[in-house]
Simulated scan of single mutants.
Amino acid sequence: MKKIKHIKILAFAAIFTMLFAGCEKESETKVIKLGHSLDISHPVHQAMIFMGERVMEKSNGSLKIDIYPNQQLGSERECLELLQIGSLGMTKVSTGVMENFAPGLRVFGLPFLFRDRDHRFEILEGNIGEDFLDSSLDKRLKGLTFYDAGSRSFYTKKPVETPEDLKGLKLRVMESQTAINMVKNLGGSPTPIAWGELYTALQQGIVDGAENNLPSFHLSRHYEVCKYFLVDEHTALPDMLVIGTPVWNKLSDDEKKWLKEAAMESSEHQKKLWRDAELEALAKIKEAGVQVLQANKDEFRDMVQPMYDEFKEDADMKKIIEEIQEAK
């Protein structure tokens, strides 16, 4: 009886190892496991599918990416921790969560940092962006590329048009100190909640609203609970495709090249998918009865100025902010 029990334990351990190994071999094909929290219809997931196809083409079938969406392998934070120990190969994470591992990324959480979309991509795809991708190597995490996550705005159960209207509202934020401080500066009550738990939290009144981009608001079906979407576009936090260095360091030079190239190509592909998704989301939420309100951005910008003053007390952060703001 003890022998049978021992065999069962060994079998379970073997299955667990097969599922969560960050990088493994299937005959002559090396497989990297990628886990993320998004729905399969999300533009970022579609871009990852595209990346997987490009990796297979570039490697002539010798390198493959298996993708596990919908938090099958954990939340963004949990996936990052699995990357660090090599139990998972890759993940997609918001830079708002990533700032817990690379403090310099806090700058992306500053409201109204970018002038427009073109300015944002000039930064992300230039030297500053490349430095940010490598800023968490000491935490065993390496960024491969950024994905467009659009601009974030507030959505609530009751109409909100000014910072005054946010006062006293419990608003869901990511596990990001910068996001928490932003909502506090605007008079709201920030409440960190995992993305996968937010629909229920809104439904049960644990929070009165949240903030995110249009496609996420649409695909999460949060519009069923929150009937007001305020276009204030306070932040433009990009998503980041990350690989754990325990897996990255096991790749050959060719495999690293194929993966990096495919990641960059998927980023370009995702930009187009994202633009289409934003237009579709806007049309769909309006059809569902959501009132889309336009904010006076200057009112919101004035309220968060203390965040800039605080950030610039750090000489390194002050330099980064100025470099971003001065970029043509």
Rank of each mutant, 00 (worst) to 15 (best):
R54S: 01
G52L: 01
I49W: 00
V44D: 01
H42R: 02
E26C: 04
I40K: 07
F50W: 01
F50L: 03
S62M: 11
S27H: 10
M18T: 11
R54W: 04
I32K: 00
I15F: 15
D39H: 02
N60A: 15
I49P: 07
A21P: 11
T29P: 00
G52S: 05
I15E: 14
I15Y: 12
L38E: 07
I40W: 02
H36M: 04
G52V: 03
S37Y: 13
L34D: 07
M56V: 03
G52K: 00
C23Q: 14
P43G: 08
F50R: 01
K33H: 12
F50T: 01
K64Q: 12
V44A: 01
D39K: 10
K64M: 04
F16L: 15
E24M: 15
V44R: 00
M48G: 06
F16T: 08
E24S: 15
D39A: 05
N60E: 13
I15R: 14
G22I: 10
P43R: 08
K33N: 11
E57F: 13
M48F: 10
L63W: 07
G52A: 04
K33F: 02
H45E: 09
F20Y: 15
V44F: 00
E53L: 00
I32P: 06
S37H: 09
K25P: 08
M56Q: 09
I15W: 11
H42Y: 04
E26V: 04
S27A: 10
M56Y: 10
K25R: 14
G22S: 11
G35Q: 10
K25I: 07
E57I: 03
A14M: 12
S41H: 03
L38M: 07
A14L: 13
K64S: 12
V44T: 09
M18W: 08
L63P: 00
D39N: 06
E24W: 15
S62P: 08
K58M: 14
K25E: 13
E53K: 02
L34H: 07
G61L: 09
R54F: 00
L19A: 13
L38V: 05
N60I: 13
I49Q: 06
E28H: 12
F20G: 07
G61P: 04
S27I: 03
K33M: 02
